[in-house]
Design a protein around this nucleic acid. Structure first.
Lengths: 216, 216
DNA sequence: GCAGCAATAGTCATTAGGGACTAGGTGACC
DNA sequence: GGTCACCTAGTCCCTAATGACTATTGCTGC
């Protein structure tokens, strides 16, 4: 197998390259960022790209799409540090062929890469089940987040910073009544009754992942 | 060098073992948890133990102490995924000889291990500087956390959950006036003026690390 | 026994926050 | 040109939260 590996931990990158090389596979490129991975794939057209999911702003997930477009014969297998079940489904939906955790032994990872190259889906059945179950339904506490406007996301950040209405108004450059309206709309959309609950909602359910990309 | 490696990602564990082996070092044991690392060190008495800091509840840091006690000739070098500057100082204070990030190339990690074995401190100067600067002084926003009582930590958890005073009172099994007093004392101790600010303080500055161990 | 702390409970006055509205201005889309 | 979504700004009324207190109980350590 000809492989491109992408991870932000140089240590893992090099070590994994060695381990895969020792098993008779050819690691044609090491990438430290999804962008590097995309250009490496464009250049080398590998059989498979092993891509760490843990990059800020969902760059990994969007990289899947680019890679599949640039080099359709290249399968993409996601590599995850934590068992971040939520992202499995999105990765597969974007075109990834597999998803494997870093807690797995190398033999299993190689096995997954092999399955991906053979055209099979290389995901643990239990993970796949869990990814398919919660169909992003309206009873999800985070379902409503997608309806927040940009301004409301800014207001959300102010809330997360513990600002009062007046601080919020001055940092947004509007009247306090306006800031108040934004807060109120935000609370209504989220179905909560206080800013504190809104903050709790965000910090409890992976605030980072649900944050819109263009607003950090 | 005879090395014990401890990380919860089996992938990194194995790959790192291979990479170190390929450079002529002997990895005598791989450990998936700090506890395993401690017993592995007790059994093999290695020159150095490479220990991932990323274990919940600060088990890594306490493992340093145990390792140093069981096998004083064994140097401990911490391995970190994120540049978690805050923990560098604690690790060194507990007896670690070094601290290196996973984003470093293997040659540099081997170099650090070598320096640790030679009795030198194997920490990036910039990290060490940053670790020594904020002397846990009273101007640290988290300095006051150590003065919170157990009850106040429970109240803090209620606040983080977005509960109102009444919800808090019923979940703590006290009168609302009592819950109120606890909240007020908590706010005063933290030097903030609202529960939202308290929550922001906790979620912004690594809420997990500063939480007392016996209360999760 | 007494000092000190924590937990409990209460008071009063003030401010901030929230619910439910209305409404003007803007830009996008059909 | 009209509709719609969004940002803006305002009102009235009420509840929740905060600040600043006092006070009792129970436990711990000297």
């Amino acid at each position: 197998m000809r492989i491109v590996v992408c991870d932000d931990h140089l240590l893992l990158l090099e070590a994994l390259g060695l381990a895969l090389g020792a098993r008779g596979h050819e690691v044609v490129a090491l990438a430290g960022t999804p962008e590097e991975a995309v250009s490496a794939v464009a250049m080398h057209r590998p059989d498979v790209c092993l891509l760490d999911v843990n990059f800020p702003g969902g760059t990994s997930v969007s990289a899947i799409h680019e890679i599949r477009e640039i080099s359709p014969q290249t399968k993409v297998v996601m590599l995850s540090a934590e068992a971040d079940h939520g992202i499995v489904g999105r990765a597969i939906a974007e075109g990834a062929s597999g998803y494997v955790g870093k807690e797995k032994p190398i033999v299993e990872i190689v096995e997954m890469l092999d399955r991906a190259v053979r055209g099979q889906l290389a995901v643990e059945p239990s993970l796949l089940q869990r990814a398919l179950r919660p169909q992003k339904s309206t009873d999800d506490p985070l379902w409503a987040l997608q309806f927040l406007t940009d301004r409301e996301w800014q207001v959300m950040r102010c809330i997360m910073d513990g600002q009062t209405t007046e601080e919020m108004a001055s940092s947004l450059g509007v009247q306090r009544s306006t800031a108040r309206t934004h807060v109120q709309n935000l609370l209504t959309k989220l179905g909560v009754h206080s800013r504190l609950q809104a903050a709790a909602l965000m910090s409890a359910h992976g605030s980072h992942e649900s944050w819109p990309v263009h607003l950090r």
